[in-house]
Design a protein around this nucleic acid. Sequence first.
DNA 1: GATGAATGAGTGTTCATTCAT
DNA 2: TATGAATGAACACTCATTCAT
Lengths: 188, 188, 188, 188
Amino acid sequence: MPKKDNIIKAATHLFATQGFDGTTTIQISKDADATEPLIYYHFTGKDEIYTSILTSIFDDYFARLKELQGKTDTQFKKIENLVRLHFQLIAKMPDEMSLIVSNRPAKLNDPGNVYSKNTQNQEKRLKYYLSSCLKKGIETGEFKKMPVKEITSILMMMIYAVLRQSAKPGRKLVDATVEFLYSSLVVK
Amino acid sequence: MPKKDNIIKAATHLFATQGFDGTTTIQISKDADATEPLIYYHFTGKDEIYTSILTSIFDDYFARLKELQGKTDTQFKKIENLVRLHFQLIAKMPDEMSLIVSNRPAKLNDPGNVYSKNTQNQEKRLKYYLSSCLKKGIETGEFKKMPVKEITSILMMMIYAVLRQSAKPGRKLVDATVEFLYSSLVVK
Amino acid sequence: MPKKDNIIKAATHLFATQGFDGTTTIQISKDADATEPLIYYHFTGKDEIYTSILTSIFDDYFARLKELQGKTDTQFKKIENLVRLHFQLIAKMPDEMSLIVSNRPAKLNDPGNVYSKNTQNQEKRLKYYLSSCLKKGIETGEFKKMPVKEITSILMMMIYAVLRQSAKPGRKLVDATVEFLYSSLVVK
Amino acid sequence: MPKKDNIIKAATHLFATQGFDGTTTIQISKDADATEPLIYYHFTGKDEIYTSILTSIFDDYFARLKELQGKTDTQFKKIENLVRLHFQLIAKMPDEMSLIVSNRPAKLNDPGNVYSKNTQNQEKRLKYYLSSCLKKGIETGEFKKMPVKEITSILMMMIYAVLRQSAKPGRKLVDATVEFLYSSLVVK
DNA sequence: GATGAATGAGTGTTCATTCAT
DNA sequence: TATGAATGAACACTCATTCAT
């Protein structure tokens, strides 16, 4: 395996578990079975490792969101799909998802940055996806009447909460969550 | 105001916004209008500032949880109280609450530590509080039949999600959240 | 006991065992059951503690040397007296003697300093005492013919070696040393 | 010359003249024409510079002692060799020898340490070498009757005194010392 | 691609010392 | 005498980064 991949893997894990500031370039190089200068051959610096990792995570994440949007379904099914997707994501790639929801490094946290933009983008997309579903569902009578803006916020909070889960969620928890949402949203 | 309090305040804010590793002792001293050595007069080191801050936050937090447990109410009202408390807490002391739910510094993260214990303690108390309410509510017919363990997890996820909220939540969001839970839990 | 004496005692012991640079003012104050500022009430600084301690040790030491010089005896007995005196001194006040022969702190080691002068003074006095004895002894036939300058150096080396002894010397060692010198110096 | 050697040389000299605690890493780096971090590239810290220097000095020193033990000679000649060796050593490498006999830094002075062990080793070897010579010499009638243990101590004191000599000893002093020992030990 | 050696800028921490009381 | 609070200057050490090969 090319060492560049080693570096990315090691850095991803370290950033996820120790944070950006808590991770040193020596640690990365050691965990990647490489030397420090090699890092600087492949990346311009520690910042760029972080940036490039986050960018590719977001790209992947956005692609999966897009897939969901293409499907036609009942509005609740669409929301269910979104929730299940996030449960799957933390099960499959916990480091990556942990990075997506963790705080940005202080020094890189000015707005206008790639991850800042991506984070806002993520929020916008989720908000759009959820509020669209809710609005349509309410219109068609599938959902109860409810304040769309607030319920969107609540659902987003839950999505983020799912991503912050450290232990792998069991199937029972996933199903219970879906059921829970069903009782809150859907007209019986 | 005694400078020790300045230091605590400054450190709390910096740790909350930049993380432990992203915060330097110089920054703390400057923000506290003090010199660096003074930090070391009042604390044994950066670690202890963090530890002592977290300990006192947890103490305060646990005291508030205890208060709630004393009250007699319907089971849903008890859960509502818990949720509203957390909304109030992030509104009143966002830095402190942010610290409670943020990742522990890598170097201090071995189990057996004060915050490790406190964090586990917090989880245990919330779990106990919530599952007690749920069980009783189901028994008395106040709540629908539901898997207690999973619903407890979901509610805890929501509590944590509330604490991670960065913007002050509006009254409408709080009420909507309570309403949302009501529809999921309570028999109509 | 007045705390000033405590400070002196503690400082003497610490300087002797850890050196000047290896001893901190907090250590001194703690061992003396005093606070740091009190040190600065009694002394102008760490340097002066050292200086004053060394000065008083040297004063005491020189007084004892002077006593010896007053006595009339055979030349060997005078040398024997000198050797025995030094054995007694390290037995009685090891910290003080250790300080006399230990290296001076780097920062205070310019010539012209009190201890520099005292150290040179000590050397001069010992040299004078010993070479006088040797010369007279050779003249009177009590001692063998020998190069006075070199034997003086050797005897001084031995005196200093005695002072550097860390363990308390037994009576047998003292007597053996005297006997040893006797065979080297005295005509049989 | 590789800079690591520079560092070792500079540190050896500074430790010998100013002591461990009186020497700063900046001083070492400046004297070695290097930067401070380079010290930490080659050594794990100030402690290890000291440790590694002392270890290699002791290794060299023990090797020379071993050489002496191989030679066959009269017992006095063997003792003479030992004394002359030490005179040569301080002439050739005064810093190194000064370090061997100087006090260990307070913080590294617990028993079980490398230098602690080496120092004890040195003492044991010298004691063994000298007392062997003395015993044999007394048995064969080469030496006068004398208490072996005490005379060994005295000779060791002299050896250490030689090593503590700061000025280069002249040939006359060396010869006088040998002569001095001869009169004390050997039967005429 | 890959590395051993090297560095400027900073980090947490300690030191001797002072101030106000 | 005595001290709690405070500080300027320095210290050991680390960090991200670069250079020469």
